[in-house]
């Protein structure tokens, strides 16, 4: 599934960080690479998604979140 559809409070594993190399590098420098565990803190309409990963609260735009593939972590 895509990160933009993620549910608040759930944990996910990042599978794929989209296709734009610039965005991938930025996401990487923020600690977001494939296989990273993230927890979705907040997902409101028309607002960047708030997620928690590697001890950091990170905001990701909805547009970019729609390109990020995640998998529910059970």
């Amino acid at each position: 599934m895509m990160l933009s559809k993620a549910i608040e409070g759930q944990t996910y594993i990042l599978i794929n960080i989209g296709s734009d190399p610039h965005f991938m590098r930025r996401a990487g420098s923020m600690g977001l690479v494939p296989n990273t565990e993230i927890r979705v803190i907040r997902n409101q309409t028309k607002m960047p998604i708030l997620l928690f990963a590697r001890d950091t609260l990170i905001a990701v735009n909805q547009k970019d979140a729609a390109e990020i593939e995640v998998e529910a972590n059970v």
Binding site: F23, R26, A59, V60
Partner: peptide
């Protein structure tokens, strides 16, 4: 365009 930083950011505690 490539320096616009809104796409992803950190919210410090």
């Amino acid at each position: 365009a490539q320096t616009r930083t809104g796409l992803i950011m950190e919210l410090p505690p």
